[in-house]
Structures are given as C-alpha cells and as structure tokens.
Amino acid sequence: MNLFDISIPHMSRTVGQVPVWLDKAQAHADQRKFDVNVLLTARLAPDQWHFTRQIQAVVFGPLRLANVLRGQAPPDLLELEPTVAAVRACVAETREKLDRLRSEDFAGAEARVIPLPFLPGKGLQAPDFVQQFALPNFYFHAVTAYSILRHNGVDVGKSDFLAPLAIRDL
C-alpha cells in the first residue's frame, strides 16, 4: 500500500460527508427558522477557527498532501465565503480533483522529504508527514467542524461522520 492508498481515498471520503452535514444544518435552521449561514461563523472556543475556516482546512488538507507527495507546490489557500452555497461548491470541486488522482501518480513519494511551513528549514520524511501530521491534522479539523454543528444543536451523529460502511456478510 503506498502513501496515496493510506491517505487520499480516506480523506476524500470524509470530504464527501460535508454535504451531509450541511443538509442537516439546513434542516435544523429551517426547523428553528434562522439563516443557516449563521452556523458557518460559529466556533467551539474563541481561539478556534469558525466552521467555514475548519472546512477550508478539510478541503485544503488532501489537496496539499496530494501535491507535496507528488513533488508539486501546495495549492494556494483560497478564502471561502461563509455561505452554504460557497462551501458546497468548494467541497464538490475538491472531490472532483481528488477523484482524478490515481495511486500510480504517487510513485516514489515515500522517498520525499516534506518541508514544514510552520518550521522553516525543517521537514519530515513523507511517510512520517502523512501519518504524524497530514492525517491527524485533517481529522482534527473535520471533527472540529462536525462538533461545531453538533454543539449548535444540529442532529448529526457518528454515522454522518463515518459515511456508509462497506459491511459484508460473514
């Protein structure tokens, strides 16, 4: 299994759940008669990013990882307008980009050293970068975004985070 196989498909699966969260947020706002976009600026703590910024990290994470593992410059982080329509469009565009990636595009990625932008002059071997930074950071932001909705009364549950499971008969 290469670095693509242990990261990008799993991250894409979680990115694909964001529209489910947004559907439930919209239903909650409709039921309570408030503008759903209010939830997009909600945060769990004053020093944490708001929902929209958390989603920016969720969609940027796998795109950045895919680029650096292939020896390309990371994509620019775009500011995301705090509207459901903008979030949905960004998520859909990200999924399309991730769906075009193939395992063979990542041949040789294990040998790369990935620079750490927050520690100039330092980096991690690509396997360590994926396992110690990229995946934990991605799931931190995904869980935080999900938790912001949950904290604000949106009826999201564990299955909304996990996505459908590939269950088989024993």
Results as ranks from 00 to 15, higher is better:
Tyr146Ile: 02
Asp128Thr: 14
Gly157Thr: 11
Phe129Gln: 02
Val130Met: 06
Phe140Thr: 10
Asn137Arg: 07
Ser159His: 13
Pro136Gly: 10
Ser159Lys: 14
Phe129Met: 10
Val130Asn: 03
Val154Leu: 01
Ala134Cys: 11
Thr144Glu: 12
Ser159Tyr: 11
Asp128Ser: 15
Gln132Gly: 13
Val154Ala: 03
Gly157Val: 11
Phe140Trp: 11
Gln131Gly: 13
Leu135Asp: 00
Ser147Thr: 14
Ser147Asn: 15
Leu135His: 06
Gln132Arg: 13
Arg150Pro: 00
Ile148Trp: 08
His151Phe: 12
Ala142Phe: 15
Ala142Met: 15
Leu135Pro: 05
Pro136Cys: 07
Val156Glu: 01
Lys158Pro: 01
Asp160Cys: 03
Arg150Glu: 05
Ala145Trp: 04
Ala163Phe: 07
Ala142Ser: 12
Asn152Tyr: 14
His141Tyr: 11
Ala163Leu: 10
Ser159Val: 11
Leu162Ala: 15
Gly157Ile: 05
Val143Asp: 05
Val156Cys: 14
Asp160Thr: 01
Asp155Met: 08
Gly157Phe: 10
Leu149Tyr: 05
Val143Cys: 13
His141Ile: 09
Asp160Met: 04
Asp128Val: 14
His151Val: 01
Val143His: 08
Phe133Cys: 00
Asp155Thr: 09
Asp128Phe: 06
Tyr146Lys: 06
Gln132Ser: 14
His141Pro: 10
Ser159Arg: 14
Ala163Glu: 13
His151Ser: 10
Leu135Ile: 15
His151Glu: 13
Asn152Val: 04
Asp128Tyr: 05
Gly157Trp: 04
Lys158Asp: 09
Phe138Val: 01
Lys158Met: 12
Val130Gly: 03
Arg150Trp: 04
Thr144Pro: 04
Thr144Ile: 11
Val143Lys: 01
Val156Ile: 15
Ile148Val: 15
Asp160Tyr: 02
Val154Pro: 09
Phe138Cys: 02
Gly157Ala: 12
Leu135Met: 15
Arg150Gly: 02
Tyr139Gln: 11
Lys158Gly: 06
Phe161Ser: 03
Ala145Asn: 07
Arg150Val: 04
Phe133Lys: 04
Val156Ala: 06
Val154Ser: 10
Gly153Cys: 09
His151Leu: 06
Asn137Glu: 07
Asp155Gln: 14
Leu149Pro: 11
Phe138Trp: 05
Gly153Lys: 09
Ala142His: 12
Ser159Thr: 13
Gly157Gln: 12
Thr144Gln: 13
Ala134Thr: 06
Pro136Arg: 08
Leu162Met: 14
Tyr146Gly: 02
Phe129Ser: 07
Gln131Asn: 15
Tyr146Gln: 05
Phe129Cys: 12
Lys158His: 08
Asp155Ala: 15
